[in-house]
Design a protein around this nucleic acid. Structure first.
Lengths: 122, 122, 122, 122
DNA sequence: GTGGTCTAGACCACC
DNA sequence: GTGGTCTAGACCACA
Protein backbone atom coordinates (compact mmCIF):
# COMPACT_ATOMS: atom_id res chain seq x y z
CA UNK A 1 0.00 0.00 0.00
CA UNK A 2 1.37 3.30 -1.07
CA UNK A 3 0.39 6.73 0.10
CA UNK A 4 1.05 8.85 -2.94
CA UNK A 5 -1.20 11.83 -2.84
CA UNK A 6 -1.51 14.50 -0.25
CA UNK A 7 -4.71 13.20 1.25
CA UNK A 8 -4.54 12.11 4.89
CA UNK A 9 -3.27 8.59 5.36
CA UNK A 10 -6.18 7.56 7.54
CA UNK A 11 -8.58 8.47 4.74
CA UNK A 12 -6.61 6.54 2.17
CA UNK A 13 -6.77 3.49 4.41
CA UNK A 14 -10.51 4.03 4.77
CA UNK A 15 -10.90 4.21 1.00
CA UNK A 16 -9.04 0.96 0.61
CA UNK A 17 -11.41 -0.70 3.05
CA UNK A 18 -14.48 0.89 1.51
CA UNK A 19 -13.38 -0.29 -1.92
CA UNK A 20 -13.21 -3.84 -0.67
CA UNK A 21 -16.60 -3.60 0.98
CA UNK A 22 -18.34 -1.94 -1.95
CA UNK A 23 -16.93 -4.39 -4.45
CA UNK A 24 -18.10 -7.24 -2.25
CA UNK A 25 -14.65 -8.69 -1.68
CA UNK A 26 -15.15 -8.33 2.06
CA UNK A 27 -18.47 -9.71 3.24
CA UNK A 28 -20.53 -8.72 6.24
CA UNK A 29 -19.48 -10.37 9.46
CA UNK A 30 -15.87 -10.72 8.39
CA UNK A 31 -13.28 -9.60 10.86
CA UNK A 32 -10.83 -6.89 9.90
CA UNK A 33 -7.25 -7.49 10.84
CA UNK A 34 -6.32 -5.86 14.10
CA UNK A 35 -5.23 -2.27 14.41
CA UNK A 36 -1.72 -3.21 15.33
CA UNK A 37 -1.36 -5.83 12.63
CA UNK A 38 -2.56 -3.55 9.87
CA UNK A 39 -0.41 -0.75 11.21
CA UNK A 40 2.75 -2.80 11.12
CA UNK A 41 1.80 -4.28 7.76
CA UNK A 42 1.46 -0.95 6.02
CA UNK A 43 4.15 0.65 8.17
CA UNK A 44 2.03 3.27 9.78
CA UNK A 45 1.47 4.30 13.37
CA UNK A 46 -1.26 2.26 15.11
CA UNK A 47 -2.99 5.51 16.07
CA UNK A 48 -3.51 6.26 12.41
CA UNK A 49 -5.17 2.92 11.74
CA UNK A 50 -7.22 3.29 14.91
CA UNK A 51 -8.45 6.59 13.59
CA UNK A 52 -9.53 4.97 10.35
CA UNK A 53 -11.39 2.21 12.15
CA UNK A 54 -13.06 4.69 14.48
CA UNK A 55 -14.24 6.72 11.51
CA UNK A 56 -15.66 3.71 9.67
CA UNK A 57 -17.30 2.59 12.88
CA UNK A 58 -18.89 6.00 13.14
CA UNK A 59 -20.14 5.64 9.59
CA UNK A 60 -21.74 2.33 10.49
CA UNK A 61 -19.62 0.34 8.06
CA UNK A 62 -17.85 -1.69 10.72
CA UNK A 63 -18.50 -2.38 14.38
CA UNK A 64 -16.44 -3.37 17.35
CA UNK A 65 -16.75 -6.44 19.51
CA UNK A 66 -15.09 -5.64 22.79
CA UNK A 67 -11.71 -7.22 23.16
CA UNK A 68 -12.07 -9.16 19.92
CA UNK A 69 -11.84 -6.80 17.01
CA UNK A 70 -13.71 -5.01 14.26
CA UNK A 71 -16.23 -6.67 11.96
CA UNK A 72 -18.07 -5.61 8.85
CA UNK A 73 -21.66 -4.71 9.64
CA UNK A 74 -24.73 -6.17 8.07
CA UNK A 75 -25.70 -4.28 4.91
CA UNK A 76 -22.35 -2.57 4.93
CA UNK A 77 -22.15 -2.88 1.18
CA UNK A 78 -25.42 -1.12 0.46
CA UNK A 79 -24.88 1.50 3.15
CA UNK A 80 -21.47 2.17 1.75
CA UNK A 81 -22.59 2.33 -1.83
CA UNK A 82 -25.47 4.69 -1.28
CA UNK A 83 -23.34 6.90 0.91
CA UNK A 84 -20.49 7.14 -1.56
CA UNK A 85 -22.89 7.60 -4.43
CA UNK A 86 -24.67 10.47 -2.78
CA UNK A 87 -21.39 12.11 -1.88
CA UNK A 88 -20.16 11.66 -5.42
CA UNK A 89 -23.24 13.19 -6.95
CA UNK A 90 -23.43 16.10 -4.55
CA UNK A 91 -19.79 17.01 -4.31
CA UNK A 92 -17.84 15.73 -7.26
CA UNK A 93 -20.23 15.89 -10.18
CA UNK A 94 -20.89 19.64 -9.97
CA UNK A 95 -17.17 20.26 -9.90
CA UNK A 96 -16.73 17.93 -12.86
CA UNK A 97 -19.37 19.73 -14.89
CA UNK A 98 -18.00 23.11 -13.97
CA UNK A 99 -14.61 22.07 -15.23
CA UNK A 100 -15.94 20.45 -18.38
CA UNK A 101 -17.77 23.63 -19.15
CA UNK A 102 -14.72 25.76 -18.52
CA UNK A 103 -12.45 23.56 -20.62
CA UNK A 104 -15.02 23.27 -23.35
CA UNK A 105 -15.21 19.49 -23.10
CA UNK A 106 -18.43 17.60 -23.60
CA UNK A 107 -19.58 14.15 -22.66
CA UNK A 108 -18.75 12.83 -26.14
CA UNK A 109 -15.10 13.52 -25.58
CA UNK A 110 -15.25 12.13 -22.06
CA UNK A 111 -16.83 9.04 -23.48
CA UNK A 112 -13.96 8.67 -25.89
CA UNK A 113 -11.44 8.73 -23.08
CA UNK A 114 -13.64 6.35 -21.13
CA UNK A 115 -13.76 3.82 -23.94
CA UNK A 116 -10.04 4.14 -24.52
CA UNK A 117 -9.44 3.28 -20.92
CA UNK A 118 -11.85 0.36 -21.06
CA UNK A 119 -10.01 -1.04 -24.04
CA UNK A 120 -6.70 -0.71 -22.30
CA UNK A 121 -8.04 -2.74 -19.41
CA UNK A 122 -8.95 -5.62 -21.68
CA UNK B 1 -18.38 35.02 -3.23
CA UNK B 2 -18.84 32.30 -0.71
CA UNK B 3 -16.21 29.98 0.68
CA UNK B 4 -18.29 27.08 1.81
CA UNK B 5 -16.38 24.10 0.67
CA UNK B 6 -13.26 22.79 2.27
CA UNK B 7 -10.91 23.75 -0.48
CA UNK B 8 -8.37 26.42 0.42
CA UNK B 9 -9.76 29.87 -0.05
CA UNK B 10 -6.82 31.04 -2.11
CA UNK B 11 -7.53 28.26 -4.60
CA UNK B 12 -11.17 29.20 -4.81
CA UNK B 13 -10.16 32.74 -5.62
CA UNK B 14 -7.74 31.44 -8.24
CA UNK B 15 -10.50 29.38 -9.82
CA UNK B 16 -12.66 32.45 -10.07
CA UNK B 17 -9.90 34.31 -11.87
CA UNK B 18 -9.04 31.39 -14.10
CA UNK B 19 -12.67 31.08 -15.09
CA UNK B 20 -12.68 34.65 -16.27
CA UNK B 21 -9.44 34.27 -18.17
CA UNK B 22 -10.31 30.97 -19.82
CA UNK B 23 -13.72 32.14 -20.85
CA UNK B 24 -12.17 35.24 -22.37
CA UNK B 25 -13.98 37.72 -20.16
CA UNK B 26 -10.67 39.10 -18.99
CA UNK B 27 -8.29 39.81 -21.86
CA UNK B 28 -4.52 39.87 -21.90
CA UNK B 29 -2.95 43.07 -20.65
CA UNK B 30 -5.89 43.89 -18.39
CA UNK B 31 -5.06 44.94 -14.86
CA UNK B 32 -6.42 42.94 -11.95
CA UNK B 33 -7.82 44.87 -9.02
CA UNK B 34 -5.31 45.29 -6.23
CA UNK B 35 -4.74 42.73 -3.53
CA UNK B 36 -6.21 44.97 -0.86
CA UNK B 37 -9.23 45.96 -2.88
CA UNK B 38 -10.11 42.40 -3.75
CA UNK B 39 -9.47 41.30 -0.18
CA UNK B 40 -11.82 43.84 1.32
CA UNK B 41 -14.38 43.19 -1.40
CA UNK B 42 -14.65 39.49 -0.72
CA UNK B 43 -13.92 39.88 2.99
CA UNK B 44 -10.79 37.87 3.13
CA UNK B 45 -7.36 38.36 4.61
CA UNK B 46 -5.12 40.26 2.15
CA UNK B 47 -2.46 37.62 2.64
CA UNK B 48 -4.84 35.12 1.14
CA UNK B 49 -5.37 37.18 -2.01
CA UNK B 50 -1.65 37.84 -2.23
CA UNK B 51 -1.10 34.12 -2.16
CA UNK B 52 -3.55 33.63 -5.00
CA UNK B 53 -1.84 36.27 -7.12
CA UNK B 54 1.56 34.77 -6.35
CA UNK B 55 0.37 31.35 -7.46
CA UNK B 56 -1.14 32.62 -10.69
CA UNK B 57 2.01 34.60 -11.28
CA UNK B 58 4.00 31.42 -10.87
CA UNK B 59 1.74 29.68 -13.38
CA UNK B 60 2.48 32.44 -15.89
CA UNK B 61 -1.14 33.56 -16.07
CA UNK B 62 -0.54 37.00 -14.61
CA UNK B 63 2.54 39.10 -14.03
CA UNK B 64 3.49 41.84 -11.64
CA UNK B 65 4.63 45.34 -12.48
CA UNK B 66 6.21 46.63 -9.31
CA UNK B 67 4.28 49.46 -7.78
CA UNK B 68 1.52 49.30 -10.38
CA UNK B 69 -0.25 46.00 -10.07
CA UNK B 70 -0.90 42.62 -11.63
CA UNK B 71 -1.74 42.16 -15.31
CA UNK B 72 -2.90 39.30 -17.43
CA UNK B 73 -0.06 37.91 -19.54
CA UNK B 74 -0.07 37.49 -23.27
CA UNK B 75 -1.56 34.16 -24.32
CA UNK B 76 -2.86 33.66 -20.83
CA UNK B 77 -6.03 32.12 -22.18
CA UNK B 78 -4.36 29.41 -24.24
CA UNK B 79 -1.69 28.70 -21.63
CA UNK B 80 -4.34 28.32 -19.04
CA UNK B 81 -6.59 26.18 -21.13
CA UNK B 82 -4.00 23.70 -22.30
CA UNK B 83 -2.52 23.43 -18.85
CA UNK B 84 -5.84 22.76 -17.14
CA UNK B 85 -6.95 20.41 -19.88
CA UNK B 86 -3.87 18.25 -19.70
CA UNK B 87 -4.06 18.07 -15.95
CA UNK B 88 -7.73 17.22 -16.11
CA UNK B 89 -7.27 14.39 -18.58
CA UNK B 90 -4.24 12.89 -16.95
CA UNK B 91 -5.16 13.19 -13.31
CA UNK B 92 -8.86 13.60 -12.87
CA UNK B 93 -10.42 11.47 -15.56
CA UNK B 94 -8.81 8.17 -14.52
CA UNK B 95 -9.94 8.76 -10.97
CA UNK B 96 -13.42 9.61 -12.24
CA UNK B 97 -13.66 6.39 -14.23
CA UNK B 98 -12.34 4.32 -11.36
CA UNK B 99 -15.01 5.73 -9.12
CA UNK B 100 -17.78 5.34 -11.66
CA UNK B 101 -16.78 1.74 -12.05
CA UNK B 102 -16.77 1.17 -8.32
CA UNK B 103 -20.12 2.84 -7.80
CA UNK B 104 -21.60 1.09 -10.81
CA UNK B 105 -22.46 4.32 -12.58
CA UNK B 106 -22.23 4.76 -16.33
CA UNK B 107 -22.08 7.79 -18.57
CA UNK B 108 -25.80 7.62 -19.24
CA UNK B 109 -26.53 8.30 -15.62
CA UNK B 110 -23.86 10.96 -15.44
CA UNK B 111 -25.46 12.59 -18.44
CA UNK B 112 -28.80 12.56 -16.68
CA UNK B 113 -27.39 14.38 -13.71
CA UNK B 114 -25.63 16.74 -16.09
CA UNK B 115 -28.83 17.64 -17.86
CA UNK B 116 -30.67 17.98 -14.57
CA UNK B 117 -28.13 20.45 -13.39
CA UNK B 118 -28.23 22.38 -16.65
CA UNK B 119 -31.97 22.71 -16.31
CA UNK B 120 -31.71 23.90 -12.77
CA UNK B 121 -29.33 26.62 -13.84
CA UNK B 122 -31.78 28.00 -16.36
CA UNK C 1 -28.63 -12.79 25.87
CA UNK C 2 -27.33 -10.04 23.66
CA UNK C 3 -24.45 -7.71 24.29
CA UNK C 4 -25.34 -4.80 22.11
CA UNK C 5 -24.60 -1.83 24.26
CA UNK C 6 -21.17 -0.54 25.03
CA UNK C 7 -21.12 -1.55 28.65
CA UNK C 8 -18.59 -4.23 29.54
CA UNK C 9 -19.95 -7.69 28.98
CA UNK C 10 -18.99 -8.91 32.43
CA UNK C 11 -21.12 -6.14 33.94
CA UNK C 12 -24.05 -7.05 31.74
CA UNK C 13 -23.81 -10.60 32.96
CA UNK C 14 -23.61 -9.38 36.54
CA UNK C 15 -26.73 -7.30 36.03
CA UNK C 16 -28.56 -10.33 34.80
CA UNK C 17 -27.58 -12.26 37.92
CA UNK C 18 -28.32 -9.36 40.24
CA UNK C 19 -31.74 -9.01 38.69
CA UNK C 20 -32.53 -12.60 39.54
CA UNK C 21 -31.22 -12.29 43.07
CA UNK C 22 -32.92 -9.02 43.88
CA UNK C 23 -36.22 -10.11 42.47
CA UNK C 24 -35.99 -13.26 44.56
CA UNK C 25 -36.03 -15.69 41.66
CA UNK C 26 -32.74 -17.09 42.82
CA UNK C 27 -32.74 -17.92 46.54
CA UNK C 28 -29.87 -18.01 48.97
CA UNK C 29 -27.88 -21.21 48.92
CA UNK C 30 -28.70 -21.98 45.31
CA UNK C 31 -25.84 -22.98 43.11
CA UNK C 32 -25.00 -20.92 40.03
CA UNK C 33 -24.21 -22.81 36.86
CA UNK C 34 -20.51 -23.22 36.30
CA UNK C 35 -18.33 -20.67 34.64
CA UNK C 36 -17.77 -22.87 31.61
CA UNK C 37 -21.39 -23.83 31.22
CA UNK C 38 -22.60 -20.26 31.38
CA UNK C 39 -19.83 -19.14 29.07
CA UNK C 40 -20.70 -21.65 26.37
CA UNK C 41 -24.40 -20.98 26.85
CA UNK C 42 -24.16 -17.26 26.22
CA UNK C 43 -21.24 -17.62 23.82
CA UNK C 44 -18.73 -15.64 25.74
CA UNK C 45 -15.15 -16.15 26.77
CA UNK C 46 -14.98 -18.13 30.07
CA UNK C 47 -12.61 -15.51 31.42
CA UNK C 48 -15.40 -12.99 31.11
CA UNK C 49 -17.82 -15.07 33.16
CA UNK C 50 -15.10 -15.79 35.69
CA UNK C 51 -14.62 -12.08 36.06
CA UNK C 52 -18.31 -11.58 36.69
CA UNK C 53 -18.37 -14.26 39.36
CA UNK C 54 -15.25 -12.81 40.97
CA UNK C 55 -16.85 -9.38 41.12
CA UNK C 56 -20.08 -10.67 42.64
CA UNK C 57 -18.02 -12.69 45.04
CA UNK C 58 -16.22 -9.52 46.05
CA UNK C 59 -19.54 -7.80 46.58
CA UNK C 60 -20.56 -10.60 48.92
CA UNK C 61 -23.49 -11.67 46.75
CA UNK C 62 -22.11 -15.09 45.93
CA UNK C 63 -19.40 -17.25 47.41
CA UNK C 64 -17.15 -19.99 46.12
CA UNK C 65 -16.82 -23.51 47.43
CA UNK C 66 -13.61 -24.79 45.96
CA UNK C 67 -14.16 -27.56 43.53
CA UNK C 68 -17.92 -27.39 43.77
CA UNK C 69 -19.07 -24.07 42.45
CA UNK C 70 -20.54 -20.68 43.30
CA UNK C 71 -23.52 -20.26 45.61
CA UNK C 72 -25.74 -17.38 46.55
CA UNK C 73 -24.90 -16.06 50.01
CA UNK C 74 -27.28 -15.70 52.91
CA UNK C 75 -29.07 -12.37 52.84
CA UNK C 76 -27.85 -11.80 49.33
CA UNK C 77 -31.15 -10.22 48.39
CA UNK C 78 -31.13 -7.57 51.08
CA UNK C 79 -27.43 -6.85 50.79
CA UNK C 80 -27.83 -6.40 47.09
CA UNK C 81 -30.88 -4.26 47.30
CA UNK C 82 -29.60 -1.83 49.89
CA UNK C 83 -26.28 -1.52 48.15
CA UNK C 84 -27.75 -0.82 44.75
CA UNK C 85 -30.36 1.50 46.18
CA UNK C 86 -27.86 3.66 47.99
CA UNK C 87 -25.63 3.87 44.97
CA UNK C 88 -28.58 4.72 42.78
CA UNK C 89 -29.78 7.54 45.00
CA UNK C 90 -26.40 9.04 45.67
CA UNK C 91 -24.82 8.79 42.27
CA UNK C 92 -27.40 8.41 39.58
CA UNK C 93 -30.32 10.52 40.70
CA UNK C 94 -28.41 13.81 40.92
CA UNK C 95 -27.06 13.26 37.45
CA UNK C 96 -30.57 12.43 36.24
CA UNK C 97 -32.00 15.62 37.67
CA UNK C 98 -29.18 17.70 36.29
CA UNK C 99 -29.85 16.32 32.85
CA UNK C 100 -33.62 16.71 33.10
CA UNK C 101 -33.08 20.30 34.06
CA UNK C 102 -30.74 20.91 31.17
CA UNK C 103 -33.03 19.25 28.64
CA UNK C 104 -36.06 20.98 30.05
CA UNK C 105 -37.85 17.76 30.89
CA UNK C 106 -40.02 17.28 33.95
CA UNK C 107 -41.31 14.23 35.76
CA UNK C 108 -44.62 14.42 33.93
CA UNK C 109 -42.91 13.77 30.65
CA UNK C 110 -40.72 11.10 32.18
CA UNK C 111 -43.86 9.44 33.47
CA UNK C 112 -45.35 9.50 30.02
CA UNK C 113 -42.37 7.71 28.56
CA UNK C 114 -42.49 5.33 31.50
CA UNK C 115 -46.10 4.42 30.86
CA UNK C 116 -45.47 4.12 27.14
CA UNK C 117 -42.75 1.66 27.82
CA UNK C 118 -44.87 -0.30 30.25
CA UNK C 119 -47.59 -0.61 27.65
CA UNK C 120 -45.15 -1.76 25.03
CA UNK C 121 -43.98 -4.50 27.33
CA UNK C 122 -47.46 -5.88 27.71
CA UNK D 1 -12.56 22.19 35.22
CA UNK D 2 -12.15 18.89 36.93
CA UNK D 3 -12.17 15.45 35.41
CA UNK D 4 -13.58 13.33 38.16
CA UNK D 5 -15.24 10.34 36.66
CA UNK D 6 -13.85 7.67 34.45
CA UNK D 7 -15.39 8.96 31.26
CA UNK D 8 -12.97 10.06 28.55
CA UNK D 9 -11.70 13.59 29.01
CA UNK D 10 -12.59 14.61 25.47
CA UNK D 11 -16.22 13.69 26.13
CA UNK D 12 -16.30 15.61 29.37
CA UNK D 13 -15.03 18.66 27.53
CA UNK D 14 -17.71 18.13 24.90
CA UNK D 15 -20.37 17.94 27.59
CA UNK D 16 -19.17 21.19 29.06
CA UNK D 17 -19.49 22.87 25.68
CA UNK D 18 -22.84 21.26 24.94
CA UNK D 19 -24.16 22.43 28.30
CA UNK D 20 -23.24 25.99 27.43
CA UNK D 21 -24.82 25.74 24.02
CA UNK D 22 -28.02 24.07 25.20
CA UNK D 23 -28.50 26.51 28.03
CA UNK D 24 -28.04 29.38 25.59
CA UNK D 25 -25.01 30.83 27.30
CA UNK D 26 -23.05 30.49 24.09
CA UNK D 27 -24.89 31.86 21.07
CA UNK D 28 -24.62 30.86 17.44
CA UNK D 29 -21.78 32.51 15.60
CA UNK D 30 -19.64 32.86 18.71
CA UNK D 31 -16.06 31.77 18.41
CA UNK D 32 -14.75 29.06 20.68
CA UNK D 33 -11.38 29.68 22.22
CA UNK D 34 -8.60 28.05 20.27
CA UNK D 35 -7.56 24.47 20.71
CA UNK D 36 -4.24 25.41 22.21
CA UNK D 37 -5.67 28.03 24.53
CA UNK D 38 -8.33 25.74 25.93
CA UNK D 39 -5.81 22.94 26.25
CA UNK D 40 -3.42 25.00 28.31
CA UNK D 41 -6.27 26.47 30.33
CA UNK D 42 -7.63 23.14 31.47
CA UNK D 43 -4.19 21.56 31.48
CA UNK D 44 -4.81 18.94 28.89
CA UNK D 45 -2.98 17.92 25.76
CA UNK D 46 -4.01 19.95 22.70
CA UNK D 47 -4.73 16.70 20.85
CA UNK D 48 -7.44 15.94 23.36
CA UNK D 49 -9.17 19.26 22.83
CA UNK D 50 -8.76 18.90 19.09
CA UNK D 51 -10.52 15.59 19.33
CA UNK D 52 -13.41 17.19 21.18
CA UNK D 53 -13.73 19.96 18.60
CA UNK D 54 -13.57 17.47 15.74
CA UNK D 55 -16.35 15.44 17.31
CA UNK D 56 -18.61 18.43 17.85
CA UNK D 57 -17.87 19.57 14.33
CA UNK D 58 -18.93 16.16 13.10
CA UNK D 59 -22.15 16.51 15.07
CA UNK D 60 -22.82 19.81 13.37
CA UNK D 61 -22.71 21.82 16.60
CA UNK D 62 -19.65 23.84 15.65
CA UNK D 63 -17.86 24.53 12.40
CA UNK D 64 -14.41 25.53 11.36
CA UNK D 65 -13.30 28.60 9.47
CA UNK D 66 -9.95 27.83 7.96
CA UNK D 67 -7.09 29.43 9.80
CA UNK D 68 -9.41 31.35 12.09
CA UNK D 69 -11.07 28.96 14.51
CA UNK D 70 -14.25 27.17 15.49
CA UNK D 71 -17.65 28.83 15.68
CA UNK D 72 -21.03 27.76 16.94
CA UNK D 73 -23.32 26.83 14.07
CA UNK D 74 -26.71 28.32 13.39
CA UNK D 75 -29.44 26.43 15.24
CA UNK D 76 -26.81 24.71 17.33
CA UNK D 77 -29.01 25.01 20.38
CA UNK D 78 -32.00 23.24 18.88
CA UNK D 79 -29.88 20.64 17.12
CA UNK D 80 -28.10 19.96 20.36
CA UNK D 81 -31.23 19.80 22.43
CA UNK D 82 -33.11 17.43 20.18
CA UNK D 83 -30.07 15.25 19.80
CA UNK D 84 -29.40 15.00 23.52
CA UNK D 85 -33.07 14.51 24.25
CA UNK D 86 -33.41 11.66 21.82
CA UNK D 87 -30.28 10.02 23.16
CA UNK D 88 -31.53 10.45 26.69
CA UNK D 89 -34.90 8.90 25.96
CA UNK D 90 -33.54 6.02 23.94
CA UNK D 91 -30.54 5.12 26.02
CA UNK D 92 -30.88 6.37 29.55
CA UNK D 93 -34.56 6.18 30.32
CA UNK D 94 -34.95 2.45 29.71
CA UNK D 95 -31.99 1.81 31.99
CA UNK D 96 -33.53 4.10 34.59
CA UNK D 97 -36.85 2.30 34.49
CA UNK D 98 -35.20 -1.08 34.60
CA UNK D 99 -33.33 -0.06 37.71
CA UNK D 100 -36.36 1.53 39.36
CA UNK D 101 -38.26 -1.65 38.76
CA UNK D 102 -35.50 -3.77 40.16
CA UNK D 103 -35.05 -1.61 43.24
CA UNK D 104 -38.78 -1.33 43.76
CA UNK D 105 -38.76 2.44 43.48
CA UNK D 106 -41.61 4.33 41.84
CA UNK D 107 -41.94 7.80 40.42
CA UNK D 108 -43.47 9.09 43.67
CA UNK D 109 -40.28 8.40 45.52
CA UNK D 110 -38.17 9.79 42.71
CA UNK D 111 -40.31 12.90 42.85
CA UNK D 112 -39.61 13.23 46.55
CA UNK D 113 -35.88 13.19 45.95
CA UNK D 114 -36.36 15.58 43.08
CA UNK D 115 -38.23 18.09 45.20
CA UNK D 116 -35.71 17.74 47.99
CA UNK D 117 -32.96 18.63 45.62
CA UNK D 118 -34.91 21.54 44.20
CA UNK D 119 -35.39 22.92 47.69
CA UNK D 120 -31.75 22.60 48.43
CA UNK D 121 -30.95 24.65 45.38
CA UNK D 122 -33.10 27.51 46.59
C1' DG E 1 -1.92 32.98 14.59
C1' DT E 2 -5.36 28.86 13.36
C1' DG E 3 -6.44 23.69 13.02
C1' DG E 4 -4.97 18.90 10.84
C1' DT E 5 -2.14 15.05 10.71
C1' DC E 6 1.20 11.87 12.18
C1' DT E 7 4.56 9.43 15.22
C1' DA E 8 6.18 7.35 19.41
C1' DG E 9 5.20 5.52 23.43
C1' DA E 10 2.53 4.87 27.47
C1' DC E 11 -1.38 3.02 30.31
C1' DC E 12 -5.89 1.13 30.73
C1' DA E 13 -10.13 -1.86 30.43
C1' DC E 14 -11.74 -5.72 28.44
C1' DC E 15 -11.94 -10.60 26.40
C1' DG F 1 -4.64 -10.83 22.66
C1' DT F 2 -8.16 -6.68 21.46
C1' DG F 3 -9.25 -1.52 21.05
C1' DG F 4 -9.51 3.28 23.65
C1' DT F 5 -7.40 7.14 25.53
C1' DC F 6 -3.89 10.32 26.50
C1' DT F 7 0.63 12.77 26.29
C1' DA F 8 4.54 14.85 24.05
C1' DG F 9 6.32 16.67 20.32
C1' DA F 10 6.78 17.34 15.47
C1' DC F 11 5.53 19.16 10.80
C1' DC F 12 2.25 21.01 7.62
C1' DA F 13 -1.22 24.02 5.15
C1' DC F 14 -3.79 27.89 5.67
C1' DA F 15 -5.32 32.92 6.94
Amino acid sequence: MKFNDNRPIFKQIADYILDNVVSGIWQEGERLISVRELASEIEVNPNTVARTYAMLSNMGIIYNQRGIGYFITANAQEKCLSQLKQEFIENELPELFRKMNLLDLDLEQIKKYYDDQKNEEK
